[in-house]
Each structure stands twice: as structure tokens, then as C-alpha cells.
């Protein structure tokens, strides 16, 4: 008797069942993916190239300062110079859509896992699976479910990239000072208010690191997605690989590197003051360390002042 576990067959029949019965769902997802991709791509590819470069450089300037602004401009001009502009914008659109969807899925799961040990215990191995499965393998069912094109690329990218988002969100929320959460409870705050006013703001640095990781993983996956016809820089790399086209391979590769660096610096800046000003108070101010020098040691250097205040307090209390 031959020893053989037919794992692959089980997966295949499972996927067959899904595509037979849930086809409508994946068709719907495909339409959503394509719609989002086209909209974002329109934003990047419709305006004149120089306008996009200048706007990107200005945003970079605001986010991190003039060095990053100039670096962004130079990087984009390099991409333009090696004739990869359109491909780079395609890939960028793919990253933006995939990362957005991955964030949208992973943060709620992370919050849920942080609040429920059972969920956490279930989610953890799934995330291990998603993160360690060789990225190319995702493309196989993705083609089966979404056919060739951008949609399977986005699907595979979301699966591959969401793990750090879930993990770092859970970690961040679980790491929030227990006493501060207790303070919320002690003053009678409900769970939703504690999440909104205490846990999320205090976990924000960790969540931001998660989002940064999602974006970087998305970019690496987007290149691999070139194998399923997602186009963009990934498509160029695939083409160069099959034709052993060294110049094309390195030009497309460099464009990926430049995009990666720019995206990383942008998202890494989410926590700092400039970016917060840029985001216009979208997030509450984050905690920061450091104590200004020369502060007084306490408010009651003058005991009389205190008792005056106490008297004043008595007066205010006595008033109806």
C-alpha cells in the first residue's frame, strides 16, 4: 500500500466547490477590485507626469522635510527616465488598492483578536499560514477564482500582506497600559468608548508600524503578481526574466526599489508631527516622551496659595 496523503486533491476539490458555488461572490469581488484599481490608476496616470512628480515631491516635503522632497522628485524622474513611468503608476495603484483593502480587513481582525483570547488563538495560526506560504502559491487559486489580470493580483496581495497588520494591531492594543484601560472602566466608560478613546490612540504607533509593513509586503507581492498578468513593473520583470533581458530587468527592478523607499518613508512618517499636521488631526496626538527642562517641581510651593484655593473651592461648592 502506498503512503500518500492527498492534501493537494482535497484543496483542489475544495476550490472547485467554491468556484462552482460561490462564483457570484468572486465575480462581485473582481468587479470591486477592478473598479477600485481603475479609479486609483486614473488619478496617477491621467495628469501630466510632471504634475504628479511635483505633487508627490510637495507631499514628501510636508511629511518629512526638504531632503525627502528632493529625493522623491529625483526618484520619480529616474523612473520616468528609464521609461517605466506608466508601469510604475500601475504598480503603485495596485499597491494602494491592495494595502487599503488589507488594512481594512486586518485592523478589525486585530482589534477583535486583542479583545478575545479565543479569536486570538484561532487567528494566530492562520496568520502564520498566510505569511509563510510561498507567495507564488497564492496565485494558483487566485487565477482559478478571478481569472487572469489585476484582480487575482490584488486578491493574492491582500492575503499575503495582511498578517503584520493583524499582528501589530493586536500587539499594540494588548500592550496598552493596563492601568489606563482600568481608569476608563473605573470612570464608567463603555467598551466602545475605551476602544476609541484609549486603546486605539495608545496603540497607534504599533498600528502604524503594521500599516507600514502591509504596504511594503504589498509592493513585494505586486511584483510577483506580474506572473498572473497584473501588469505594471511586475509584468516587466516577468517579461525580462523569460527573455533574459538584463537592461529591462534592472530598470524595472530599480523602479520597484525607488517606489519601495518612497512608500516606506511616507508611511514611516505617519507618527511624526509634520505628517500629523498633514493628516489634519485625523488621528489624535500621540504620546511622546521627554520632559521640558526647568519645570516647577510641584504646584504647592506656596502653602498659602493652596489653602486660598481650597477656600475658593469651598466657596464654589457652597454656591448652589
Amino acid at each position: 500500500m502506498e503512503y500518500r496523503i492527498h492534501f493537494g486533491d482535497w484543496i483542489t476539490s475544495g476550490l472547485d466547490w467554491i468556484s462552482a458555488n460561490l462564483n457570484w461572490f468572486f465575480e462581485f469581488l473582481r468587479a470591486v477590485y477592478l473598479g477600485m484599481y481603475d479609479s486609483v490608476n486614473w488619478v496617477f496616470n491621467t495628469p501630466p507626469v510632471l504634475v504628479v512628480v511635483i505633487v508627490a515631491a510637495l507631499l514628501a516635503l510636508l511629511a518629512r522635510g526638504w531632503k525627502f522632497g528632493i529625493g522623491t522628485a529625483v526618484g520619480f524622474l529616474f523612473i520616468l527616465g528609464v521609461n517605466q513611468w506608466e508601469n510604475a503608476m500601475d504598480s503603485l495603484s495596485l499597491v494602494v488598492v491592495s494595502a487599503f483593502l488589507a488594512v481594512l480587513v486586518s485592523i478589525p481582525i486585530g482589534i477583535w483578536a486583542a479583545r478575545n483570547d479565543v479569536v486570538s488563538a484561532i487567528v494566530k495560526p492562520i496568520m502564520d499560514f498566510l505569511q509563510t506560504m510561498p507567495a507564488l502559491v497564492y496565485l494558483i487559486p487566485a487565477i482559478a477564482l478571478f481569472r487572469i489580470g489585476v484582480a487575482p493580483g490584488i486578491f493574492a496581495t491582500v492575503l499575503f500582506a495582511m498578517a503584520p497588520g493583524v499582528r501589530l494591531t493586536e500587539l499594540g492594543i494588548r500592550g496598552v497600559d493596563h492601568e489606563v484601560v482600568e481608569a476608563g472602566h473605573a470612570f464608567g466608560a463603555g467598551p466602545a468608548r475605551i476602544l476609541r478613546q484609549i486603546q486605539l490612540p495608545l496603540a497607534m504607533p504599533s498600528i502604524m508600524a503594521g500599516i507600514n509593513q502591509i504596504i511594503m509586503l504589498s509592493l513585494s507581492m505586486v511584483v510577483i503578481a506580474g506572473f498572473v498578468g497584473a501588469g505594471g513593473l511586475g509584468g516587466e520583470v516577468t517579461k525580462a526574466l523569460s527573455a533574459l533581458d538584463k537592461p529591462l530587468g534592472f530598470e524595472a527592478g530599480m523602479a520597484v526599489v525607488i517606489l519601495a523607499i518612497i512608500l516606506d518613508r511616507f508611511t514611516g512618517a505617519f507618527g511624526n508631527k509634520r505628517a500629523k499636521a498633514l493628516l489634519g488631526g485625523l488621528f489624535n496626538r500621540l504620546p511622546r516622551g521627554g520632559t521640558p527642562p526647568g519645570e516647577p517641581t510641584g504646584g504647592s510651593d506656596n502653602p498659602e496659595a493652596i489653602s486660598d484655593l481650597v477656600d475658593e473651592n469651598r466657596a464654589t461648592r457652597a454656591a448652589p
Binding site: V180, A183, H185, A186, I198, P201, N284, R285
Partner: peptide, 18 residues
């Protein structure tokens, strides 16, 4: 009850840093 009848002061202050 917590809102109306009792409040608490914590060892490590437990202020909202943001």
C-alpha cells in the same frame, strides 16, 4: 454606579497621554 458614585486614583496615574 461607577460614573455616579465612585472614582479612582491609580498608582501610576493612568492618565490619557494623548
Amino acid at each position: 454606579i461607577r460614573r455616579k458614585r465612585m472614582s479612582m486614583v491609580f498608582q501610576h496615574f493612568a492618565l490619557l497621554p494623548h
